[in-house]
Amino acid sequence: MSDDTQLDDRSTDESLPVQTDPTSGIDHEKAQRGVKLVLEAIGEDPDRPGLTDTWQRRIPEMLATLSEGDRQAAKPTMRTFEATSQDLVVKTGIPVYSLCEHHMLPYHGTAHIAYRPDGDVVGLSKLIRYVRWQSRRLTMQEELTQDIAHGLAEELDAEAVLVEISATHMCEAMRGIETETTTTTRATIGEPTSGERQRFQDAIARTDGETR
C-alpha cells in the first residue's frame, strides 16, 4: 500500500473529532491529520496525555486564527469619514505578529503607518485591525510591508502612504544563526513630501524612545 493511499484511508478515520466550526476557513480534519503526523515524525506519541488536545483542537484552532489574512471575510470593515484637512495621518507602535513562510515560525515587532488622505480618513483603531489582518498568514516581512502599504492606499484612496516595520524573526533566533536581530523594511506609495517623510520618522523616533 502506498503512502498516499494510507493518507487517503486516514481521511475517513471516524476516530477524528468532527470539525466544529465549518466557517473557520481551514480544513480541520486535514490539520488534525497533519499535526498528528508531525508529532509522530519527531518521535512523540500523539495520544499521550498533554498532546491529544494539541492535534485534535489547539493547533487547528490556532491555524484558523493565524491564517485569517488569507480570507477576505475576516478583513476589517474600513469605514471612512470625511477628512477636515489633507494633513498627514500618523499611527505608530502597532504590534505585528506573523508567520515566516519559509519555516512557519513567528516573527514579531512593530509597524508604523502614515498616510495623506484624499478626502476621507479611517478610524485609528481600524489601522491596527488592518495590520493585524494582513499579518495573519504565511508571508515574508518585505512582502507584508508592501501589502499593507498598497492595501491601505487602495482602501483609503490615499494620495501617499508610508509603512515601516521592524521585527525579530524566530527562524533566526531559534535556529540557523540563533541570534536575535531586528530587520526593518519600508514601503512608500505615492510621493510624500520631504516634510511628511521627516514628520513620519520623527514620530517613529518618539515612539521608539518611549518604549526603551
Rank of each mutant, 00 (worst) to 15 (best):
T110W: 01
A64P: 11
S194V: 15
A114V: 01
T193Q: 08
K75Q: 15
D9Q: 13
S194C: 09
T182G: 11
D157Q: 12
V89R: 06
D70H: 00
A64M: 03
E143Y: 07
I128N: 02
D208W: 05
P117D: 04
L99P: 05
K30Q: 14
E29C: 11
A203R: 11
I128G: 07
T84V: 12
A167Q: 05
A41C: 03
A64E: 04
T179W: 05
E68C: 01
T77K: 13
L51R: 06
G93F: 00
G190T: 10
F200M: 12
E155R: 12
S15Q: 14
M78E: 01
T183N: 10
Q32P: 02
V122C: 14
Y115P: 06
E101H: 06
T185W: 01
V121R: 09
V161N: 07
G151R: 07
G151Q: 00
D147E: 15
G190Q: 08
M62P: 04
E142L: 05
T207V: 10
K91I: 15
H102V: 09
T182L: 14
Q134R: 13
R132F: 02
T207S: 14
H102G: 09
R58H: 14
L152C: 02
R136E: 00
D47N: 15
L88T: 00
V18H: 12
D3P: 13
Q201A: 15
M140N: 08
S135K: 03
A114T: 04
K91R: 14
I26A: 09
L66R: 12
L105R: 03
A167N: 08
Q32E: 15
Q134L: 02
R132N: 11
I128H: 11
A205N: 11
Y130A: 01
L162N: 03
L162Q: 11
T54I: 02
V163K: 01
T77I: 12
R186S: 14
G50N: 03
A83V: 07
E68H: 04
R136A: 03
R71Y: 05
A173G: 07
P76G: 00
R33S: 10
A160F: 09
A187Q: 02
L144K: 08
V90N: 02
R137H: 02
V18Y: 10
